[in-house]
Amino acid sequence: MGDNSQPMRKYKLVFLGEQSVGKTSLITRFMYDTFDHAYQATIGIDFLSKTMYLEDRTIRLQLWDTAGQERFRSLIPSYIRDSSVAVVVYDIANRNSFSNCSKWIDDVRAERGGNVIIVLVGNKTDLAERREVSTEEGEQKAKEFNTMFIETSAKAGYNVKPLFRRIAQALPGIETQQQQQNEYPSQLIDIKMGQNKQNEGCAC
């Protein structure tokens, strides 16, 4: 809690999508690309936070992964709450996972309205021979839902860095508005403010 001393802007990214579409793989690829997996420190509490150095500024991304809890469907909204970015992932070799993206995007819009960047990600391009969803279909859906779109392969390391870079670049544009949103969410102002104060004063 409370690394408020950091001057860096922090943004919350939530990863959504059906089970085994590669949410966590995208994250681990992004986080650990330069490391030898076998010697990586225990994956734990600090796992999902990374600083990105952009040309004009430095930001910190906090990645919230819903992996493993997809079936606890009713808990997902608490992940989406207060997020700046929602990364909705499907598997290009699994049509069902693509169809379900609409539902995930709807969930995000319902929670966050227009105050969020949504990226539709078609993962597993390494499985080209088993492709069930064409790139055009992905683009089409992205257009329909007014989201960003990219195809990736977490396994091959394809387009993973560009994905995060594009997200990072899209963030400054909404900074002013987003900043207010993060500190004082439009809904239930009382609760959130109370929460912040409490954290600081918490003696436990």
Partner: peptide, 26 residues
């Protein structure tokens, strides 16, 4: 229970099954 599933998923996907090409188990 959900927290354990998240942890299991991270460990499963964040770590290789083998530590080298000779298929030594991780």
């Amino acid at each position: 229970l959900g927290v354990y599933f998240t942890d299991l998923t991270f460990v499963e996907l964040g770590n290789e099954d083998y530590i080298d090409k000779a298929l030594n188990i991780n």
